[in-house]
Simulated assay, not measured.
Amino acid sequence: FNFHPWLYLFLVPAIAMRSWSEERKTGTIELLMTLPISISQAMIAKYLAAWAVLGLSLLLTFPLWLTVNYLGDPDNGIILAAYIGSWFMAGGFLAIGLCMSALTKNQVIAFILAVVVCFVFVVSGTNIVLDAFKSWAPATVIDVIASFSFLSHFETMAKGVIALADIVYFLLVTLIWLYAGMLLIEQKKAD
Rank of each mutant, 00 (worst) to 15 (best):
P5F: 12
W6C: 00
P13W: 11
I15Y: 11
S21E: 07
S21H: 10
K25S: 14
G27N: 07
G27Y: 06
E30R: 10
L31C: 04
M33D: 07
I37G: 00
I39G: 01
I39Y: 03
I44Q: 02
K46I: 06
Y47E: 04
A50F: 06
A50K: 10
A50G: 04
L56G: 11
S57K: 02
L58F: 14
T61C: 12
P63Y: 14
P63H: 14
T67R: 12
V68R: 13
Y70P: 00
L71C: 01
D73W: 11
D73T: 13
N76C: 00
N76D: 06
I78Q: 12
I79D: 09
G85Y: 04
G85N: 02
S86Y: 09
L94H: 08
L94A: 00
L94R: 05
I96P: 01
G97S: 05
C99G: 00
S101Q: 05
T104W: 13
K105S: 15
K105C: 08
I112G: 01
V115I: 14
F119Y: 15
V122E: 13
I128G: 00
V129P: 05
V129A: 02
V129D: 06
D131L: 12
A132Y: 10
F133D: 05
F133V: 07
A137L: 09
T140L: 11
V141Y: 14
V141C: 02
D143I: 06
A146G: 15
S147L: 09
L151G: 01
F154M: 11
M157Q: 07
G160Q: 12
I162D: 08
A163H: 13
A165R: 14
Y169G: 03
F170M: 02
L172E: 01
V173E: 08
T174I: 06
W177S: 07
W177I: 02
L178F: 05
M182I: 13
L184P: 04
K189D: 13
K189I: 01
